[in-house]
Design a protein around this nucleic acid. Structure first.
Lengths: 218, 218
DNA sequence: ATGGAAATAGGGCAAATGCCTTATTGATTT
DNA sequence: AAATCAATAAGGCATTTGCCCTATTTCCAT
């Protein structure tokens, strides 16, 4: 069962959503809060998998709430709820740490689907919002466009796992730390790194990171 | 009914997907193509609502195909199919004009849901890919507008010699190589580096270099 | 079904690294 | 003149790293 905290300053909406979701067995509403402060307060006693968070609230809005919740409880996922699909709000929300973004007029079944998708690591968004997100991405991309002489990890036959490891190296982790974070033995981590060195033709972590940075893999 | 063109160089996969989708009445497969050229060719006679497009193809890959299709038929929507979820491919694809991105292992029902979401103007993505997209967005954001406040080496009381050493570290040299280049003993080089670590509050070459880069000393 | 990656895990060893200590010399500051 | 600091040099030691080796399991493709 996926546990949820509901946050909205409008009591009527709070009740509506709560009722709509109560039909579904796979969803459990742990608590309801009427604002950002109330939500953070209740998080001290309840630990839901995710928050459904209204973006327009007085005092502390959804974005600021997201920022604070993410700081205190990084593994609680955040789904933004909004009546509007204001472009600037979307990317503020994503920046703050939200992973999903729904308009309030979605059908309950869609909301449940979105909740499940979020738990699977996805980023469910209502269509109009998803489209805005793509637009933002395309725009941003063009702005940062360079002479693209960067090689792809494919050119070196790096596997996904190896790229993952490379990121950890770049983060300055030791073999043991990498092993711990990826739930593998230190020996395996070292083996991966050996293979990376082979493929990249380097001979130290420093060289590997330099290579990764030069090609913008990190 | 939503009409579709299927493009994949692998005949087996082509057949599989086609069979899986044929069960659903709301989907109609207008044509199948085994590559980018073939697809563009067939688009002259058929006009589907969207293309399901394999990203890894010989000759013309999914991204190049997307670019050309979007140029010729801007209102045909593109859903990328891929076995991988490589970050660089994702944003290449989005830039080229794709609106959806699925891994091939999705269940048929999910694929159909994604197709419908795409027609509603959304941007359906498999969870892992959606997460990558958010990461790209967050990263791009930081790159775009940053008022970064860089510290000076003086703030850490680094001496000239120490900065010189730091540059050598950043260049990936070992203690011995640094010693050779600066005409000092390896012991001295190591001592300098110890002092640098002290002052920067770091504990490895990697961390020291990261710090140097963050503050634009290198 | 069979072969080949990819991911996992481990042994062993020499070199490099990180960190502690002390010491000398010259330059700068007080 | 004394105190400080930067730069030099060295000894010692535990840990990490780089690089050999082998081996199993799973999954994918021929």
């Amino acid at each position: 069962m996926i546990t949820i905290g509901l946050v909205d300053d409008n009591p009527t909406l709070l009740r509506n959503i709560s009722q709509n979701l109560s039909i579904f067995d796979e969803i459990g509403i742990l608590f309801q809060a009427n604002g950002g402060y109330d939500a953070i307060n209740k998080l001290n006693n309840h630990h839901p998998d995710m928050l459904l968070l209204d973006i327009e609230m007085p005092e502390m809005d959804g974005i600021e709430t997201t920022r604070r919740v993410k700081e205190l409880f990084p593994n609680i996922k955040i789904m933004m709820l909004s009546v509007l699909d204001r472009e600037d709000k979307i990317f503020e929300a994503i920046k703050a740490g939200a992973s999903g973004y729904l308009t309030k007029d979605e059908k309950p079944s869609k909301i449940v689907a979105a909740i499940e998708e979020l738990m699977e690591g996805g980023a469910p968004m209502s269509p109009a919002i998803a489209m805005k997100t793509l637009q933002i991405l395309r725009k941003q991309e063009v702005a940062g466009q360079k002479t693209e002489v960067y090689k792809s990890p494919d050119d070196f036959n790096l596997t996904k796992r190896e790229i993952e490891i490379l990121e950890k190296i770049a983060a300055g982790l030791t073999y043991n730390q990498i092993a711990d974070q990826l739930f593998i033995s230190a020996k395996t981590a070292r083996k991966h790194i050996e293979n990376i060195y082979q493929k990249l033709q380097v001979h130290s972590k420093l060289d590997a990171v330099a290579m990764a940075q030069k090609n913008k893999w990190v």
